[in-house]
Design a binder for these strands. Structure first.
Length: 892
RNA sequence: GGACGUUUAGCUCAGUUGGUUAGAGCGUUCGAUUCACAUUCGAAAGGUCGCAGGUUCGAAUCCUGCAACGUCCACCA
C-alpha cells in the first residue's frame, strides 16, 4: 500500500487525541440529555466519579480509575443506555490546608494561621485549590474520560455546601448529631481531632510498668503510660475476680504527686480480663477511650467516678498533674513519675513489650486521647420514624438489603470486602465530625458566646443550628469545620441537586456503579452508604468495585518520598492515551494490587499500532466495496473466523457487564492479534472476495475495542467514512452468532500449517524456499485439506501439496494430530533430528496412553464420571493411539 | 488475640461450578525484511502449580495443618 497522509505506517496518537476529545465534547454525547434518540429513551446508567483531591495533580491511580469508569460508561452508552459519568473534585479539607500551610512556611510565613488570619489564609488556599482543580480537570480530559462536564461538581461549591448544611441540620433535628464532651483522638502536631478512620496503628516497643499507688493500696496495676496515672479516678476489676471482689465499691485516697490527692474507686467491669497483667486496670477516663466508656457507664449506673485531664492540647502536663509535672512533655513526666515510684519502692516490675499505638494518618504523630467538647454523629440512636440506627442501615445495605428489600442491596466486589466491612460496622464508635480547620464546610451552628477549643467541660451558651445566623445581635458561628468525609459522604446525591428533588435526583440514583481503592472502603464507602440510606432511604450504588493499589515494578507504593512517581500525562505524550489505558487495566485482578511499568505501556502501544495496521490493510484492500453487500462465509476460514468473532462478541459483553475489564481486554487482544491478524488476514491475501466480511469484522472489532482505546478506534472509524463510534451500536446477537458455530474444523488446517513450519525449521529448510509436501490423511480431514490446499500451500510455503496414501521414502516427516505429513528435502533429510523428535514425542505419548487406558479400565471411573468425560477420554485415547502408530511407522 | 488476601514459567499475571498433556504477555534462544505492521512475522526452550497431609475414580482447583509475604480488625491495661 502507498504511504499516504491519512494512513502513515505507524499510528501517531499525538496528532489525533486532542481533536477527537474536542469533537466528542462538542458533540454533546457526554451529556445524557443530548445523546441520540436511541439513548435518550434507553435505560439509565450512572456513575459518580470519585472526586480527586485538589491538592496537586492527577496520578496513575486516578488515571486507572478514570479508565475503568470510562470503559464502563462507554460500553453502556454504546449499548443504548442513557449513560452519565458525573465528574467532580474534592476540596480535601485537611490535606489541602496543610499543604498550603507548608508552602507558605517555605515562603517564610512561619505561622500562617496567626499571621494571615482566617479570611486571608482561606483565600490563599482557595487560590491554590482552584489552580490545582483546573489542572486536574484538564488531565481527566487527557485520559479520554467521557464525563458530563455540564454537571461538574465540587465538594465545596455553593450547591454542595447547601446539601451539607441541610444534612447537618436534618441529622441534628433527628437527634443523631450531638455536641458532647468525650475523649477524642488529638493530633498535637496538627492541633486537630481525628476520626477513628484517620488513625493508623503502628507497632512500637514500650515498657509495661507494674506498680501500686501506695504501700497500703491493696491492688497492683500495670500500665504503659505511667504519667496518665496522675489522672486516675478508679481501678477496674472483673466482677468475678475472687481476689478483688471484697474491694469493689470502696474508695481509696492516694497521693502520688498530682495537684490533689486521687480518689480511687474500685469498680467492677466485665471488660477487664482477669488473666491479663494483674487483672486490675487503673482507670484514666480523660486519657483513654476505653476508660472513658467506663466513666460513662458508671455515670449511667449512678455510681460516678471522676475525670481529671492531666494532659493538655499542647501535649504537656496540665496543672491538675501537680506542680512537679505541669508543663512537662508526656515523656518527661513519665520518666519523672517512674523514678518517683522507684524511690518509694512502689514499682514492682518493668517489662519490655510491643505496643500498638494510633498515629495521625496526616501528621504521623502519636495521637493523644483527650476529652473535649466536639460534634458527634451517633451510630446507635434510633432514627425517628425508622425504628433503626445508622449502624443498622449500614449493615442492612449489604446484607438483607435496605428494609429487607433485595432490590436495595449493594453488591460489593470482591465479595470478601463485605466481611471486613461488617466487622468494622460492629466496632464503629460515634463519628467525631468537627475539625479545627478553616478550609472546609463551617459547622452550621451559632452561639451567643464563642466557645474556645478547650479540654475543660465548658458551660454551654445559647445555641442555634442552621445554615444562616438567627435574627439578633451577638451570634457567632462555630469556628470549626466539618470532617471532609461528611461532604464526600453525600457525593452520590449532593451531585444530583439534593436537597431539591430534581429530575436528575429522581433519575440517576441509586447510581449504577461505584469504584474506589480499598483504602477508601471505610473512610468513604461506609459514609456514602450511611448518608444515602439515611437521606433517601435508598442505596447509593448497586455495585461497588474495590480495586487494589497500583505499585511500581518492585511492588513499592508510588509516592513522592520514594521518588518513583510516574506522571500519567507524560506517558500519554510519549505512548498515547490508548496505550496507557490498556496498561492500567490489563493483567489486574479485582481487589488485588497490581504493578505498573513502562515496558507494559510499550507492549500496549504495539497493540494499538497493530489495530491501526489491521485497519490500514483492511481499508486499503476493500476500498471499492459496496458496504451493503451481504456478509457470507464462503470458505472454512470464513466460517471459523466469524464463529470466533461471534463468540468473542458475547464473551466480551458478558465480561464488561460484570466489570471484568482485564479479562475482556485480554480476550479481545488474543483474538485480534492471533486469530484475526496472524491467521485470517494472511488467508485473506490468498482467498479473494472477502471485502464484505473484512469490513464487517473490522467494524465489529473497532466497536468492541472502543471502550478500551477510544481514540485510535474513533479515528479509524472516521477514516473509514463513518461517524461517531462513541455512540455506535454495540455488536449484539446477529445472524452470525447462530449461523456459524463450528471452530474446531479449522484447527486441523491451522495445526497442519504450524507443524509443517516447525518441520521446516527443524530440517533447516531455507525460510524463503518453496518445497513439495505430501499429506496422508483420511476421512473428513482429507476433504477439508483438499478444500484448503491453496491456503496451506501459501502459509507453509509449499510449491505443491499432494494428498497421498503414504509419504514418499526419503522425505522428512512429522505427525500433525492424526495426519502424517512429509516434505521433500531432496535427500538432505536430517534423520537424526527427525528421529529424535519422533522419539521424544513417543516418550511423551506412551505414559499418556497408559494413564488413559488405566483410567478407562477403572470401573469406578467409568461408572462415576459423567458420560461426557468418559467419552472425551475415549476419543483422546483413540487419537493418541493413532498418533503413536504413525510416529512408530515413521521412526523405523 | 482474631480475620482476610497472595504464593502457578526468569518476570508480570490468567486458569470460570474438581474432569485428566497447566495458558498468555514480556524476556530468552534460533530464524526471517518488496508488496498492513521490525511498534513486525515464523519456530523453540522454559512449570514436581509454596510445603505436608487428607477427601475423590480424578485436585493448580475442595478440606486440614504449616511457611513466607502483604493487609485489616480488637477496650494487649
Amino acid at each position: 500500500m502507498q504511504e499516504n497522509e491519512k494512513w502513515p505506517k505507524a499510528y501517531d496518537s499525538s496528532q489525533v487525541e486532542k481533536d477527537i476529545y474536542k469533537h466528542w465534547e462538542e458533540s454533546g454525547y457526554f451529556n445524557p440529555d443530548t445523546l441520540p434518540e436511541r439513548n435518550r429513551g434507553g435505560e439509565m446508567y450512572s456513575i459518580m466519579m470519585p472526586p480527586p483531591n485538589v491538592t496537586g495533580v492527577l496520578h496513575l491511580g486516578h488515571a486507572m480509575e478514570d479508565t475503568i469508569m470510562d470503559i464502563a460508561v462507554r460500553f453502556q452508552r454504546m449499548r443504548g443506555k442513557k449513560a452519565l459519568l458525573l465528574p467532580g473534585t474534592d476540596h480535601a479539607a485537611i490535606a489541602t490546608q496543610s499543604k498550603v500551610e507548608k508552602l507558605l512556611m517555605k515562603e517564610g510565613v512561619k505561622y500562617p494561621r496567626e499571621e494571615l488570619g482566617r479570611e486571608k489564609l482561606v483565600e490563599k488556599i482557595r487560590e491554590f485549590a482552584e489552580n490545582s482543580k483546573s489542572t486536574i480537570l484538564s488531565q481527566i480530559r487527557v485520559m479520554g474520560t467521557s464525563c458530563d462536564w455540564s454537571r461538574l461538581a465540587y465538594t465545596l461549591d455553593e450547591a454542595r455546601n447547601r446539601a451539607v448544611n441541610e444534612l447537618f441540620v436534618r441529622m441534628y433535628k433527628d437527634g443523631l448529631i450531638y455536641r458532647g464532651y468525650r475523649v477524642v483522638n488529638w493530633s498535637i502536631k496538627g492541633q486537630i481531632t481525628c476520626s477513628d478512620d484517620e488513625i493508623v496503628y503502628i507497632e512500637r516497643p514500650a515498657k509495661l510498668y507494674t506498680f501500686k499507688y501506695s504501700k497500703d493500696f491493696p491492688i497492683t496495676i500495670a500500665t504503659t503510660r505511667p504519667e496518665t496515672k496522675l489522672g486516675d479516678t478508679a481501678v477496674a476489676v472483673h466482677p468475678d475476680d475472687e481476689r478483688y471482689k471484697k474491694y469493689v465499691g470502696q474508695t481509696f485516697t492516694v497521693d502520688i504527686g498530682a495537684a490533689k490527692p486521687l480518689l480511687i474507686k474500685i469498680i467492677a467491669d466485665e471488660s477487664v480480663e482477669k488473666d491479663f497483667g494483674t487483672g486490675a486496670l487503673g482507670v484514666t477516663p480523660a486519657h483513654s477511650a476505653v476508660d472513658f466508656t467506663m466513666y460513662e457507664k458508671q455515670k449511667a449506673k449512678n455510681d460516678p467516678i471522676g475525670i481529671v485531664p492531666v494532659i493538655g492540647t499542647d501535649g504537656r502536663m496540665t496543672e491538675a498533674a501537680g506542680k512537679d509535672y505541669v508543663g512537662l512533655t508526656v515523656e518527661e513526666a513519665r520518666e519523672k513519675f517512674v523514678s518517683w515510684l522507684k524511690t518509694r519502692g512502689l514499682l514492682e516490675s518493668e517489662e519490655d513489650i510491643t505496643q500498638n499505638v494510633g498515629t495521625s494518618d496526616r501528621y504521623e504523630d502519636v495521637v493523644e486521647s483527650l476529652p473535649m467538647t466536639q460534634w458527634w454523629l451517633d451510630m446507635n440512636r434510633e432514627i425517628p420514624g425508622r425504628g433503626k440506627s445508622l449502624r443498622d442501615l449500614m449493615r442492612e445495605a449489604v446484607t438483607t438489603g435496605l428494609d429487607g428489600s433485595a432490590e436495595k442491596k449493594i453488591r460489593i466486589m470482591p465479595e470478601r470486602i463485605v466481611k471486613e466491612y461488617l466487622d468494622r460496622i460492629d466496632n464503629l464508635r460515634d463519628w467525631c465530625l468537627s475539625r479545627q480547620l478553616w478550609w472546609g464546610h463551617r459547622i452550621p451552628v451559632w452561639y451567643k458566646k464563642q466557645p474556645a477549643v478547650t479540654n475543660d467541660e465548658s458551660s454551654e451558651k445559647e445555641m442555634y443550628v442552621g445554615a444562616v445566623a438567627p435574627e439578633g445581635e451577638g451570634w457567632e458561628q462555630d469556628p470549626d469545620t466539618l470532617d471532609t468525609w461528611f461532604s464526600s459522604g453525600s457525593w452520590t446525591f449532593s451531585t444530583l441537586g439534593w436537597p431539591e428533588i430534581t429530575e436528575d435526583l429522581k433519575r440517576y440514583q441509586p447510581t449504577s456503579w461505584m469504584q474506589m481503592g480499598y483504602e477508601l472502603r471505610y473512610l468513604w464507602m461506609m459514609r456514602m452508604i450511611l448518608m444515602h440510606t439515611y437521606v433517601l432511604e435508598e442505596i447509593p450504588f448497586k455495585d461497588c468495585y474495590i480495586h487494589g493499589l497500583l505499585k511500581d515494578e518492585h511492588g513499592k507504593k508510588f509516592s513522592k518520598s520514594s521518588g518513583n512517581g510516574i506522571d500519567p500525562i507524560e506517558v500519554v505524550e510519549r505512548y498515547g492515551c490508548d496505550a496507557l489505558r490498556l496498561s492500567l487495566i490489563l493483567g489486574i485482578s479485582p481487589g488485588n494490587d497490581s504493578k505498573f511499568y513502562l515496558e507494559k505501556v510499550e507492549a500496549n502501544r504495539n497493540l494499538v499500532n497493530k489495530i491501526w495496521n489491521i485497519s490500514r490493510f483492511i481499508v486499503s484492500s476493500t476500498q471499492d466495496t459496496d458496504s451493503a453487500s451481504r456478509v457470507e462465509a464462503k470458505t472454512l476460514a470464513d466460517k471459523w473466523l466469524l464463529a470466533r468473532l461471534a463468540e468473542i462478541e458475547s464473551r466480551v459483553t458478558e465480561m464488561l457487564e460484570s466489570y471484568q475489564f482485564s479479562q475482556a481486554g485480554e480476550m479481545l487482544r488474543d483474538f485480534t492479534w492471533s486469530d484475526l491478524a496472524d491467521w485470517y488476514l494472511e488467508i485473506a491475501k490468498i482467498e479473494k472476495g472477502k471485502e464484505a466480511i473484512l469490513r464487517h469484522i473490522l467494524e465489529t472489532v473497532l466497536k468492541l475495542w472502543h471502550p478500551f482505546m477510544p481514540f485510535v478506534t474513533e479515528y479509524i472509524w472516521g477514516l473509514m467514512g463513518n461517524k461517531d463510534l462513541i455512540v455506535a451500536e454495540w455488536p449484539k446477537d446477529d445472524v452470525l452468532r447462530t449461523e456459524y458455530r463450528e471452530t474446531a474444523e479449522f484447527e486441523t488446517v491451522r495445526n497442519l500449517v504450524t507443524d509443517i513450519r516447525r518441520l521446516r525449521a527443524e530440517q533447516g529448510v531455507e525460510p524463503a524456499k518453496f518445497i513439495e509436501a505430501g499429506v496422508a490423511a483420511s476421512g473428513d480431514d482429507q476433504q477439508r485439506l483438499e478444500e484448503n490446499v491453496e491456503v496451506i500451500k501459501h502459509l507453509a510455503r509449499l510449491s505443491e501439496m499432494k494428498l497421498v496414501a503414504t509419504v514418499p521414502e526419503g522425505w522428512a516427516t512429522t505427525i500433525s494430530g492424526v495426519i502424517t505429513v512429509g516434505i521433500n528435502v531432496a535427500g538432505t533429510v536430517d534423520k537424526e533430528k527427525e528421529k529424535a523428535k519422533a522419539e521424544k514425542e513417543i516418550a511423551e505419548l506412551k505414559p499418556y496412553i497408559t494413564s488413559l487406558q488405566a483410567k478407562l479400565q477403572n470401573e469406578e471411573f467409568t461408572s462415576k464420571a459423567p458420560e461426557k468425560v468418559v467419552q472425551g477420554m475415549k476419543d483422546k485415547l483413540a487419537e493418541a493411539e493413532a498418533k503413536l502408530k504413525a510416529l512408530e511407522d515413521t521412526s523405523t
